[in-house]
Amino acid sequence: MKRISDVISIIFIAVAVAFFVISNSFPAGSNGAVGPAWFPRIMCVIIIILSVINLVTTTLADKELSEEERAADRQKTANIFSKDNLIVWVTVGATLVYVICIQKLGFVVSSIAYILIMNFYYKVPKISRIAAVVIPFAVTGVLYYVFTNLLHVVLPSGILI
């Protein structure tokens, strides 16, 4: 997907430029040794060169494609943000909310709610109603037991559990 590849190349260039600029504030090396800015700067320059090469080669490769192939590639990119791909974006959004809720509400409540909601969104009850309801509690319970009791990890408890 050319367009996504191009956008990523541009983001890489922007990140490399930002890291290069920030490295100006690093102290210089002493007694002949190179400073902490030396290696990151080399990497930034290489990233910029490679990103430009990628932009040029994908553009050249795109020119050699037929109009239909180009249209198909554009369609593939458009599909990512289309309604057909809504399930991915809902999953991404729900996961972000879940990640935030882990800290605010606690691991147990957030995980049960997340799996339960996703099960209903993914229409799991059509396969098995029992599985749709039991799995969230069972999985969260097992994970909570393994991590807290066996591995001694204190999972976030938030305002609930």
Partner: peptide
């Protein structure tokens, strides 16, 4: 569709458990 939410939760708890740090999950 049954596996995906379970794996997501495992990703979160696995990342958290390394340093007991919420930022790792982010």
């Amino acid at each position: 569709r049954i596996l995906i939410p379970v794996i997501m939760v495992m990703c979160a708890v696995g990342s958290f458990s390394i340093n007991n740090n919420f930022y790792d999950v982010l």
